[in-house]
Design a binder for these strands. Structure first.
Lengths: 210, 210
DNA sequence: AATTGTGAACCTCTTCACAGCT
DNA sequence: AGCTGTGAAGAGGTTCACAATT
Protein backbone atom coordinates (compact mmCIF):
# COMPACT_ATOMS: atom_id res chain seq x y z
CA UNK A 1 0.00 0.00 0.00
CA UNK A 2 1.11 3.50 -0.85
CA UNK A 3 2.04 5.90 1.94
CA UNK A 4 -0.22 8.78 1.06
CA UNK A 5 1.88 11.23 3.07
CA UNK A 6 4.85 10.67 0.80
CA UNK A 7 2.89 11.86 -2.24
CA UNK A 8 2.98 15.60 -2.89
CA UNK A 9 0.06 17.68 -4.10
CA UNK A 10 2.14 18.52 -7.16
CA UNK A 11 2.41 14.87 -8.06
CA UNK A 12 -1.34 14.35 -7.77
CA UNK A 13 -2.03 17.44 -9.84
CA UNK A 14 0.35 16.20 -12.52
CA UNK A 15 -1.23 12.75 -12.51
CA UNK A 16 -4.53 14.46 -13.39
CA UNK A 17 -2.79 16.12 -16.30
CA UNK A 18 -1.24 12.86 -17.49
CA UNK A 19 -4.68 11.28 -17.26
CA UNK A 20 -6.11 13.96 -19.52
CA UNK A 21 -3.18 13.65 -21.89
CA UNK A 22 -3.73 9.90 -22.14
CA UNK A 23 -7.42 10.40 -22.87
CA UNK A 24 -6.49 12.78 -25.67
CA UNK A 25 -3.94 10.33 -27.08
CA UNK A 26 -6.41 7.44 -26.92
CA UNK A 27 -8.96 9.54 -28.80
CA UNK A 28 -6.31 9.90 -31.49
CA UNK A 29 -5.81 6.11 -31.46
CA UNK A 30 -2.27 6.38 -30.13
CA UNK A 31 -1.37 3.10 -28.43
CA UNK A 32 2.10 3.77 -27.10
CA UNK A 33 3.64 6.85 -25.54
CA UNK A 34 7.00 7.67 -23.97
CA UNK A 35 7.55 9.65 -20.79
CA UNK A 36 9.21 12.22 -22.99
CA UNK A 37 6.09 12.71 -25.12
CA UNK A 38 3.84 13.05 -22.07
CA UNK A 39 6.35 15.54 -20.68
CA UNK A 40 6.45 17.67 -23.81
CA UNK A 41 2.68 17.93 -23.98
CA UNK A 42 2.64 19.16 -20.39
CA UNK A 43 5.78 21.31 -20.59
CA UNK A 44 7.72 19.39 -17.96
CA UNK A 45 10.64 16.92 -17.95
CA UNK A 46 10.44 13.21 -18.71
CA UNK A 47 12.19 12.38 -15.43
CA UNK A 48 9.36 14.13 -13.62
CA UNK A 49 6.77 11.97 -15.36
CA UNK A 50 8.65 8.76 -14.57
CA UNK A 51 9.32 9.78 -10.98
CA UNK A 52 5.65 10.64 -10.39
CA UNK A 53 4.56 7.26 -11.69
CA UNK A 54 7.28 5.43 -9.75
CA UNK A 55 5.59 6.29 -6.45
CA UNK A 56 2.72 4.03 -7.43
CA UNK A 57 4.31 1.18 -9.36
CA UNK A 58 5.98 0.37 -12.65
CA UNK A 59 3.68 0.83 -15.60
CA UNK A 60 5.99 1.08 -18.58
CA UNK A 61 8.26 -1.20 -20.56
CA UNK A 62 11.93 -0.32 -20.88
CA UNK A 63 12.84 0.48 -24.41
CA UNK A 64 9.22 0.72 -25.47
CA UNK A 65 7.36 3.27 -23.36
CA UNK A 66 3.84 3.05 -21.97
CA UNK A 67 0.69 1.49 -23.35
CA UNK A 68 -1.81 4.37 -23.32
CA UNK A 69 -4.81 2.26 -22.30
CA UNK A 70 -2.97 0.50 -19.51
CA UNK A 71 -1.41 3.65 -18.13
CA UNK A 72 -4.73 5.49 -18.25
CA UNK A 73 -6.36 2.65 -16.41
CA UNK A 74 -3.63 2.59 -13.77
CA UNK A 75 -3.85 6.35 -13.20
CA UNK A 76 -7.63 6.04 -12.92
CA UNK A 77 -7.11 3.50 -10.16
CA UNK A 78 -4.58 5.73 -8.39
CA UNK A 79 -6.83 8.77 -8.53
CA UNK A 80 -9.93 6.83 -7.54
CA UNK A 81 -11.66 7.41 -10.85
CA UNK A 82 -12.74 3.82 -11.44
CA UNK A 83 -15.93 4.61 -9.57
CA UNK A 84 -18.35 7.52 -9.97
CA UNK A 85 -18.62 10.07 -7.19
CA UNK A 86 -21.91 11.45 -5.94
CA UNK A 87 -21.62 15.20 -5.71
CA UNK A 88 -23.93 17.75 -4.11
CA UNK A 89 -24.04 21.32 -5.35
CA UNK A 90 -24.81 24.09 -2.88
CA UNK A 91 -25.78 27.41 -4.41
CA UNK A 92 -27.56 27.56 -7.72
CA UNK A 93 -26.45 30.95 -8.95
CA UNK A 94 -24.33 31.64 -12.01
CA UNK A 95 -21.47 29.41 -11.04
CA UNK A 96 -23.74 26.64 -9.81
CA UNK A 97 -25.57 26.66 -13.15
CA UNK A 98 -22.33 26.51 -15.08
CA UNK A 99 -20.95 23.67 -12.99
CA UNK A 100 -24.12 21.62 -13.37
CA UNK A 101 -23.72 21.77 -17.11
CA UNK A 102 -19.94 21.40 -17.16
CA UNK A 103 -19.48 18.20 -19.14
CA UNK A 104 -15.95 17.60 -17.90
CA UNK A 105 -17.15 16.74 -14.38
CA UNK A 106 -19.54 14.11 -15.65
CA UNK A 107 -16.88 12.75 -17.98
CA UNK A 108 -14.49 12.24 -15.06
CA UNK A 109 -17.21 10.50 -13.06
CA UNK A 110 -18.30 13.33 -10.78
CA UNK A 111 -22.09 13.21 -10.92
CA UNK A 112 -24.15 16.04 -9.47
CA UNK A 113 -26.97 14.18 -7.75
CA UNK A 114 -28.51 16.98 -5.69
CA UNK A 115 -28.70 20.76 -5.69
CA UNK A 116 -29.38 22.91 -2.62
CA UNK A 117 -30.30 26.57 -2.48
CA UNK A 118 -31.76 28.86 0.15
CA UNK A 119 -33.77 30.88 -2.37
CA UNK A 120 -37.43 29.67 -2.31
CA UNK A 121 -37.80 30.87 -5.90
CA UNK A 122 -35.21 28.35 -7.03
CA UNK A 123 -36.38 25.43 -4.90
CA UNK A 124 -38.40 22.92 -6.90
CA UNK A 125 -36.79 23.72 -10.23
CA UNK A 126 -35.64 20.67 -12.15
CA UNK A 127 -32.59 21.14 -14.36
CA UNK A 128 -30.72 18.39 -16.17
CA UNK A 129 -32.90 15.98 -14.22
CA UNK A 130 -31.73 17.29 -10.86
CA UNK A 131 -34.12 18.98 -8.39
CA UNK A 132 -33.22 22.10 -6.44
CA UNK A 133 -33.88 21.40 -2.75
CA UNK A 134 -34.07 23.70 0.26
CA UNK A 135 -31.09 23.73 2.62
CA UNK A 136 -33.40 22.55 5.40
CA UNK A 137 -33.72 19.13 3.77
CA UNK A 138 -30.10 18.87 2.72
CA UNK A 139 -28.84 16.53 5.47
CA UNK A 140 -31.53 13.99 4.82
CA UNK A 141 -31.21 14.20 1.04
CA UNK A 142 -27.41 14.00 1.19
CA UNK A 143 -27.70 10.77 3.12
CA UNK A 144 -30.39 9.29 0.87
CA UNK A 145 -28.45 10.22 -2.25
CA UNK A 146 -25.17 9.11 -0.69
CA UNK A 147 -23.45 12.39 -1.46
CA UNK A 148 -19.68 12.11 -0.96
CA UNK A 149 -18.48 15.53 -2.08
CA UNK A 150 -20.13 18.93 -1.71
CA UNK A 151 -19.38 21.80 -4.09
CA UNK A 152 -19.76 25.21 -2.46
CA UNK A 153 -20.94 27.82 -4.97
CA UNK A 154 -22.46 30.47 -2.70
CA UNK A 155 -21.41 34.01 -1.80
CA UNK A 156 -18.38 34.12 0.51
CA UNK A 157 -20.30 35.27 3.57
CA UNK A 158 -22.50 32.16 3.56
CA UNK A 159 -19.78 29.64 2.79
CA UNK A 160 -18.40 28.83 6.26
CA UNK A 161 -21.77 28.23 7.92
CA UNK A 162 -22.86 25.96 5.08
CA UNK A 163 -19.65 23.98 5.30
CA UNK A 164 -20.18 23.61 9.05
CA UNK A 165 -23.71 22.45 8.37
CA UNK A 166 -22.65 19.79 5.87
CA UNK A 167 -19.85 18.61 8.14
CA UNK A 168 -22.49 18.04 10.80
CA UNK A 169 -24.34 15.95 8.19
CA UNK A 170 -21.27 13.78 7.81
CA UNK A 171 -19.74 15.21 4.63
CA UNK A 172 -15.95 14.89 4.60
CA UNK A 173 -14.93 16.52 1.31
CA UNK A 174 -15.61 19.96 -0.18
CA UNK A 175 -14.73 21.83 -3.33
CA UNK A 176 -14.99 25.52 -2.52
CA UNK A 177 -15.70 28.11 -5.21
CA UNK A 178 -16.46 30.88 -2.72
CA UNK A 179 -13.64 33.42 -2.53
CA UNK A 180 -12.96 32.99 1.17
CA UNK A 181 -10.85 30.63 3.25
CA UNK A 182 -12.69 27.95 5.19
CA UNK A 183 -11.89 26.40 8.56
CA UNK A 184 -12.56 22.68 8.88
CA UNK A 185 -11.51 19.92 11.30
CA UNK A 186 -8.48 17.84 10.44
CA UNK A 187 -10.48 14.90 9.13
CA UNK A 188 -12.32 17.00 6.54
CA UNK A 189 -10.89 17.83 3.11
CA UNK A 190 -11.31 21.18 1.41
CA UNK A 191 -9.93 22.12 -1.99
CA UNK A 192 -10.30 25.67 -3.18
CA UNK A 193 -11.09 26.82 -6.67
CA UNK A 194 -9.98 30.42 -6.56
CA UNK A 195 -10.64 31.80 -10.01
CA UNK A 196 -9.18 35.22 -9.27
CA UNK A 197 -5.82 33.86 -8.17
CA UNK A 198 -4.69 32.96 -11.68
CA UNK A 199 -5.81 36.31 -13.06
CA UNK A 200 -3.82 37.99 -10.31
CA UNK A 201 -0.80 35.89 -11.23
CA UNK A 202 -1.18 37.14 -14.82
CA UNK A 203 -1.49 40.68 -13.49
CA UNK A 204 1.69 40.21 -11.45
CA UNK A 205 3.72 38.94 -14.40
CA UNK A 206 2.39 41.54 -16.82
CA UNK A 207 3.19 44.26 -14.29
CA UNK A 208 6.63 43.08 -13.22
CA UNK A 209 8.05 41.57 -16.39
CA UNK A 210 11.28 43.02 -17.71
CA UNK B 1 13.61 46.57 -8.77
CA UNK B 2 12.52 43.04 -7.89
CA UNK B 3 14.03 40.12 -9.75
CA UNK B 4 10.86 38.44 -10.90
CA UNK B 5 12.67 35.13 -11.43
CA UNK B 6 13.45 34.86 -7.73
CA UNK B 7 9.73 34.92 -6.85
CA UNK B 8 8.03 31.54 -6.84
CA UNK B 9 4.52 30.87 -8.07
CA UNK B 10 3.66 29.76 -4.54
CA UNK B 11 4.62 33.15 -3.17
CA UNK B 12 2.44 34.96 -5.70
CA UNK B 13 -0.48 32.67 -5.00
CA UNK B 14 -0.11 33.30 -1.29
CA UNK B 15 0.09 37.06 -1.82
CA UNK B 16 -3.31 36.83 -3.49
CA UNK B 17 -4.61 35.08 -0.40
CA UNK B 18 -3.13 37.67 1.93
CA UNK B 19 -4.72 40.35 -0.21
CA UNK B 20 -8.12 38.74 0.21
CA UNK B 21 -7.54 38.26 3.92
CA UNK B 22 -6.70 41.95 4.28
CA UNK B 23 -9.83 42.96 2.41
CA UNK B 24 -11.89 40.84 4.80
CA UNK B 25 -10.16 42.35 7.83
CA UNK B 26 -10.64 45.87 6.53
CA UNK B 27 -14.34 45.16 6.04
CA UNK B 28 -14.41 44.24 9.72
CA UNK B 29 -12.65 47.53 10.55
CA UNK B 30 -9.50 45.78 11.75
CA UNK B 31 -6.61 48.23 11.50
CA UNK B 32 -3.66 46.13 12.60
CA UNK B 33 -2.75 42.51 11.96
CA UNK B 34 0.22 40.29 12.79
CA UNK B 35 1.89 37.83 10.47
CA UNK B 36 0.66 35.16 12.84
CA UNK B 37 -2.99 36.17 12.40
CA UNK B 38 -2.68 36.25 8.61
CA UNK B 39 -1.01 32.85 8.80
CA UNK B 40 -3.74 31.28 10.94
CA UNK B 41 -6.49 32.46 8.62
CA UNK B 42 -4.68 30.85 5.71
CA UNK B 43 -3.47 27.75 7.56
CA UNK B 44 0.23 28.41 7.07
CA UNK B 45 3.12 29.61 9.26
CA UNK B 46 3.87 33.20 10.23
CA UNK B 47 7.44 32.85 8.99
CA UNK B 48 6.04 32.03 5.57
CA UNK B 49 3.99 35.22 5.54
CA UNK B 50 6.94 37.36 6.60
CA UNK B 51 9.31 35.67 4.15
CA UNK B 52 6.89 36.16 1.25
CA UNK B 53 6.57 39.86 2.02
CA UNK B 54 10.32 40.27 2.54
CA UNK B 55 10.95 39.65 -1.17
CA UNK B 56 9.21 42.92 -1.92
CA UNK B 57 10.12 45.21 0.96
CA UNK B 58 9.45 45.81 4.64
CA UNK B 59 5.85 46.63 5.34
CA UNK B 60 5.43 45.97 9.06
CA UNK B 61 6.53 47.50 12.33
CA UNK B 62 8.47 45.34 14.78
CA UNK B 63 6.51 44.69 17.92
CA UNK B 64 3.31 46.02 16.37
CA UNK B 65 2.47 44.09 13.21
CA UNK B 66 1.08 45.44 9.96
CA UNK B 67 -1.38 48.22 9.20
CA UNK B 68 -4.11 46.51 7.18
CA UNK B 69 -4.69 49.40 4.77
CA UNK B 70 -1.03 49.95 4.09
CA UNK B 71 -0.26 46.28 3.59
CA UNK B 72 -3.27 45.83 1.33
CA UNK B 73 -2.12 48.79 -0.71
CA UNK B 74 1.41 47.45 -0.97
CA UNK B 75 0.24 44.02 -2.08
CA UNK B 76 -2.03 45.65 -4.65
CA UNK B 77 1.03 47.41 -6.04
CA UNK B 78 3.05 44.18 -6.09
CA UNK B 79 0.30 42.23 -7.84
CA UNK B 80 -0.43 45.01 -10.30
CA UNK B 81 -3.94 45.59 -8.97
CA UNK B 82 -3.71 49.37 -8.72
CA UNK B 83 -4.99 49.57 -12.27
CA UNK B 84 -7.94 47.86 -13.90
CA UNK B 85 -7.30 45.22 -16.54
CA UNK B 86 -9.25 44.99 -19.78
CA UNK B 87 -10.30 41.41 -20.31
CA UNK B 88 -11.78 39.69 -23.36
CA UNK B 89 -13.96 36.62 -22.97
CA UNK B 90 -13.94 34.02 -25.74
CA UNK B 91 -16.79 31.55 -25.64
CA UNK B 92 -20.17 32.53 -24.30
CA UNK B 93 -21.46 29.16 -23.12
CA UNK B 94 -22.23 28.18 -19.56
CA UNK B 95 -18.84 29.03 -18.16
CA UNK B 96 -18.58 32.24 -20.15
CA UNK B 97 -21.94 33.38 -18.78
CA UNK B 98 -20.93 32.58 -15.22
CA UNK B 99 -17.61 34.38 -15.56
CA UNK B 100 -19.23 37.50 -16.98
CA UNK B 101 -21.39 37.74 -13.89
CA UNK B 102 -18.75 36.68 -11.40
CA UNK B 103 -18.51 39.73 -9.17
CA UNK B 104 -15.10 38.81 -7.78
CA UNK B 105 -13.35 39.56 -11.09
CA UNK B 106 -14.82 43.04 -11.28
CA UNK B 107 -13.99 43.63 -7.63
CA UNK B 108 -10.33 42.81 -8.26
CA UNK B 109 -10.25 45.12 -11.26
CA UNK B 110 -10.57 42.61 -14.08
CA UNK B 111 -13.18 44.13 -16.37
CA UNK B 112 -14.69 42.09 -19.18
CA UNK B 113 -14.83 44.58 -22.02
CA UNK B 114 -15.59 42.31 -24.94
CA UNK B 115 -17.12 38.90 -25.61
CA UNK B 116 -16.41 36.75 -28.66
CA UNK B 117 -18.30 33.71 -29.87
CA UNK B 118 -18.45 31.79 -33.12
CA UNK B 119 -22.18 31.03 -32.77
CA UNK B 120 -24.17 33.46 -34.99
CA UNK B 121 -27.16 33.01 -32.66
CA UNK B 122 -25.19 34.53 -29.79
CA UNK B 123 -23.56 37.33 -31.76
CA UNK B 124 -25.26 40.66 -31.18
CA UNK B 125 -26.60 39.80 -27.74
CA UNK B 126 -25.89 42.46 -25.12
CA UNK B 127 -25.42 41.21 -21.57
CA UNK B 128 -24.30 43.31 -18.62
CA UNK B 129 -23.64 46.05 -21.15
CA UNK B 130 -21.19 43.94 -23.14
CA UNK B 131 -21.85 42.92 -26.76
CA UNK B 132 -21.15 39.45 -28.11
CA UNK B 133 -19.00 39.82 -31.22
CA UNK B 134 -18.05 37.36 -33.95
CA UNK B 135 -14.55 35.90 -33.84
CA UNK B 136 -13.90 37.44 -37.25
CA UNK B 137 -13.90 40.93 -35.73
CA UNK B 138 -12.01 39.99 -32.60
CA UNK B 139 -8.55 41.27 -33.55
CA UNK B 140 -9.86 44.69 -34.42
CA UNK B 141 -12.11 44.91 -31.37
CA UNK B 142 -9.37 43.67 -29.04
CA UNK B 143 -7.14 46.47 -30.25
CA UNK B 144 -9.85 49.13 -30.05
CA UNK B 145 -10.87 48.02 -26.58
CA UNK B 146 -7.25 47.60 -25.52
CA UNK B 147 -7.78 44.04 -24.30
CA UNK B 148 -4.81 42.85 -22.23
CA UNK B 149 -5.97 39.42 -21.10
CA UNK B 150 -8.12 36.85 -22.91
CA UNK B 151 -10.17 34.28 -21.03
CA UNK B 152 -10.65 31.05 -22.98
CA UNK B 153 -14.03 29.45 -22.20
CA UNK B 154 -14.60 27.28 -25.27
CA UNK B 155 -14.63 23.50 -25.78
CA UNK B 156 -11.12 21.96 -25.61
CA UNK B 157 -10.91 21.17 -29.32
CA UNK B 158 -11.27 24.84 -30.26
CA UNK B 159 -8.98 26.26 -27.61
CA UNK B 160 -5.55 26.01 -29.24
CA UNK B 161 -6.53 27.58 -32.55
CA UNK B 162 -8.25 30.47 -30.78
CA UNK B 163 -5.19 31.06 -28.62
CA UNK B 164 -3.03 31.06 -31.75
CA UNK B 165 -5.43 33.54 -33.32
CA UNK B 166 -5.32 35.94 -30.38
CA UNK B 167 -1.53 35.67 -30.14
CA UNK B 168 -1.42 36.79 -33.77
CA UNK B 169 -3.56 39.77 -32.68
CA UNK B 170 -0.91 40.68 -30.11
CA UNK B 171 -2.44 39.25 -26.94
CA UNK B 172 0.22 38.13 -24.47
CA UNK B 173 -1.79 36.72 -21.53
CA UNK B 174 -4.46 34.03 -21.34
CA UNK B 175 -6.56 32.42 -18.65
CA UNK B 176 -7.59 29.02 -19.95
CA UNK B 177 -10.75 27.27 -18.72
CA UNK B 178 -10.71 24.67 -21.48
CA UNK B 179 -9.62 21.27 -20.20
CA UNK B 180 -6.64 20.90 -22.51
CA UNK B 181 -3.02 21.97 -22.41
CA UNK B 182 -2.04 24.85 -24.67
CA UNK B 183 1.22 25.52 -26.49
CA UNK B 184 2.37 29.13 -26.65
CA UNK B 185 5.62 30.94 -27.43
CA UNK B 186 7.90 31.87 -24.55
CA UNK B 187 6.80 35.48 -24.41
CA UNK B 188 3.13 34.58 -23.92
CA UNK B 189 1.61 33.77 -20.52
CA UNK B 190 -1.00 31.08 -19.98
CA UNK B 191 -2.57 30.20 -16.65
CA UNK B 192 -4.90 27.23 -16.49
CA UNK B 193 -8.07 26.96 -14.50
CA UNK B 194 -8.59 23.23 -14.38
CA UNK B 195 -11.74 22.71 -12.38
CA UNK B 196 -11.56 18.91 -12.50
CA UNK B 197 -8.10 18.78 -10.99
CA UNK B 198 -9.22 19.67 -7.48
CA UNK B 199 -12.10 17.21 -7.64
CA UNK B 200 -9.62 14.55 -8.70
CA UNK B 201 -7.40 15.47 -5.77
CA UNK B 202 -10.40 14.97 -3.46
CA UNK B 203 -11.07 11.66 -5.18
CA UNK B 204 -7.45 10.62 -4.62
CA UNK B 205 -7.47 11.44 -0.92
CA UNK B 206 -10.88 9.89 -0.30
CA UNK B 207 -9.72 6.75 -2.10
CA UNK B 208 -6.27 6.40 -0.54
CA UNK B 209 -6.79 7.72 2.96
CA UNK B 210 -5.94 5.36 5.81
C1' DA C 1 6.50 41.99 25.85
C1' DA C 2 5.44 41.62 21.28
C1' DT C 3 6.45 41.11 16.66
C1' DT C 4 9.12 41.93 12.41
C1' DG C 5 12.84 40.80 9.08
C1' DT C 6 16.20 37.54 7.71
C1' DG C 7 20.44 34.45 7.42
C1' DA C 8 21.05 29.75 8.16
C1' DA C 9 19.36 25.15 8.68
C1' DC C 10 16.35 22.07 7.11
C1' DC C 11 13.45 19.65 4.24
C1' DT C 12 11.10 18.57 -0.02
C1' DC C 13 10.84 18.35 -4.80
C1' DT C 14 13.11 18.15 -9.27
C1' DT C 15 16.66 16.80 -12.29
C1' DC C 16 20.61 14.03 -13.43
C1' DA C 17 22.65 10.07 -14.93
C1' DC C 18 23.02 5.48 -15.57
C1' DA C 19 21.99 0.49 -14.76
C1' DG C 20 18.71 -2.60 -16.49
C1' DC C 21 15.32 -4.27 -19.55
C1' DT C 22 13.15 -4.87 -24.30
C1' DA D 1 19.41 1.45 -29.73
C1' DG D 2 15.72 3.13 -27.06
C1' DC D 3 13.39 4.02 -22.99
C1' DT D 4 12.12 3.04 -18.15
C1' DG D 5 12.97 3.09 -13.18
C1' DT D 6 15.54 4.99 -9.52
C1' DG D 7 19.40 6.31 -6.21
C1' DA D 8 22.02 10.30 -5.71
C1' DA D 9 22.89 15.08 -6.51
C1' DG D 10 21.16 19.51 -6.95
C1' DA D 11 17.84 23.22 -6.63
C1' DG D 12 14.34 25.47 -4.47
C1' DG D 13 11.05 26.37 -0.89
C1' DT D 14 9.92 26.41 4.11
C1' DT D 15 10.84 26.80 8.86
C1' DC D 16 13.85 28.00 12.62
C1' DA D 17 15.65 31.06 15.64
C1' DC D 18 17.21 35.30 16.98
C1' DA D 19 18.79 40.17 16.52
C1' DA D 20 16.43 44.41 15.84
C1' DT D 21 12.75 47.43 16.82
C1' DT D 22 8.61 49.42 18.94
Amino acid sequence: MIDINKISDSTIRRLSKYYRTLNELIEKNVETVSSNEIANINSITSAQVRKDLSFFGTFGRRGLGYNTFLLKDNIATILGLKKTWNVGLVGFGNIGHALLQYQEFKKQGFIIKAIFDSDPAKVGQIIEGVVVNPIADSCEISKETQIEIIIIAVPPKNAQSLVDHFISCGIKAFLNFAPTSLKVPENVLVKNENMSIELEALSFFLTNKA
